[in-house]
Design a protein around this nucleic acid. Sequence first.
DNA 1: TTGTAGGCGTTATCAT
DNA 2: ATGATAACGCCTACAA
Lengths: 336, 336
Amino acid sequence: MPSRPTIRDVAARAGVTDMTVSRVVNRSGPVSEGVRRRVEQAIEELGYVPSRLARGLRSKRTLTIALVVSDITNPFFTTIARGVEDAASDQELLVMVCNTDESEEEETRYLGMLAGQNVDGVLLVPAKGAENACALAERRRLPLVLLERRIPGNAHSLVHCDVRSGARRMMEHLLKLGHREFALLTSPIGLTTADDRVEGALEALKGTGGRATVFSERLNRETSGKAVERWMALNPRPTAIFALNNLLTIGALKALRARGFRVPQDVSLAGFDDLPEPLLENPFLTVVSQPSYEIGKAGFELLLAEIANPGFAHREVMLQPELVIRDSCGSPTVFE
Amino acid sequence: MPSRPTIRDVAARAGVTDMTVSRVVNRSGPVSEGVRRRVEQAIEELGYVPSRLARGLRSKRTLTIALVVSDITNPFFTTIARGVEDAASDQELLVMVCNTDESEEEETRYLGMLAGQNVDGVLLVPAKGAENACALAERRRLPLVLLERRIPGNAHSLVHCDVRSGARRMMEHLLKLGHREFALLTSPIGLTTADDRVEGALEALKGTGGRATVFSERLNRETSGKAVERWMALNPRPTAIFALNNLLTIGALKALRARGFRVPQDVSLAGFDDLPEPLLENPFLTVVSQPSYEIGKAGFELLLAEIANPGFAHREVMLQPELVIRDSCGSPTVFE
DNA sequence: TTGTAGGCGTTATCAT
DNA sequence: ATGATAACGCCTACAA
């Protein structure tokens, strides 16, 4: 009942010591041609695979990183994950994925587990109040790069997207179409990135005579009907609705339709975050699209730098979102 | 410049040996109340987190598993991943995610990395020709559970979905609507699950006078126009198209529309695999929906059993898909 | 070019 | 209830 072969099993079979095998495996030293061949054959015959565990214990490198997001099921994060994994895979690194559901507690729990140095670094999309998690990483000297969301007063490296400009440009687009009355939909959890979006949108209004009302919404089957009523009860009634994240966008679309409002004939609807092209059954929604795949890739690169040079220069990468103009926004129409 | 504290740092600070600390941390032995408190305080003060690496090296358990899928970006796999991660998280296990893009080579590469025993087990959605990967796992005694797709003649535990019955039931539904001429769309890579779907669909036709033509398609912007022509050139022309996976379903819908065919007025379109409800902007597609979240959860449970009892009874779990009837299929209409 | 010694941070086992 | 010892599998440093 042979257990998994170790480096010493290989060594024995090849008639050398474990060090020689180690040299062959890692090309970390000179080995004569004949010995190399014998060792390689032994490795082959035994099906030897070096233990990353033991290796990590010595070298302090596990060749593994973690990606902590709120919900991998959200296509925005899914695409980030794919970007991270592709980049990591190129370097023969493995990636763990953790879902926090925006819970600070889960986040802290995960960072605790990850700090058990089974991971060389962490890519974190921080939940509200991620200070705990960051402090934990700091304490354990765990390289950490933030993704997508800032933490006020935090000095970690960060990859994010210029959502403020994205929101502003979308509003400018809507203004150009002739809209002046807006409803802005944002999520009730106070994320920096959500605030940035709101601010960007409002910025665009300055000196235009446009007006926006901000609604904090969590849309689901029960709440969405009432929400639509609130938006449309505004006086004057908004001609354009700008939903500041992807779930809100879809939620708003469904809710509006359910109440008999046609988009864009009755109201324009602009959104944030796109769905991957192959999943888009009906390219329709005009959105601010964030380069999520690139966020993942860039995050990985920064993390790699951080790992190689811990606490060196904390850097910030800001990517530009893209305005994707489709069919859900038109010129305002006047009712009755 | 203190490095990460080890169990011995804690021991020193608490005035005990590392073994005592170990006992406190793992509740693995008797510790007097006072000592326990001192140790706990030292742990707190130092911010000690046990090394999973060292732990794993000793105990042969890393409390980590891997999920290997073709593409995490496909919502079907994303949801599986979420199911796995939720279940794993309950047991304080971490999950690695790997994308193979259906490449046997990538799959083998990943299994090699994972076999470096930094993982207690693997959940694999096998690509075509995953025998290599399975053999590798076998050799390294790496617990492995297959997800979603069978491998002919393979003895590993398996969680999948009764796609044959799902496809059959969908066809029965279409027959009941009056359809007799079908186009079946399947992917060109020869997956067992794809074959099962085709067979299930054809089964339903027996003795009904219905007829189906099978097309192996890879739909993209270039190919899809010609593909539509092929389907619709059938004589008699199909009144219903059944796409056997989610990408084909969306692809077919877009392609048909682009060629001016309205769904369902001109052709009915049935699909496989659903999008998560919150992402469904416009619930429209009639589909066979697989319980992907549950596949993930069940897979994890099986893997846990496998880990606890390696090579015990290889089990198979088959979940039932659900017919989701929406608006993309109607009764056949006659042209010209 | 190859080998020896020792330790990375834990925990199993045996001893006190 | 606590401690001493060894070992998990590998690699760094040094020696031959």
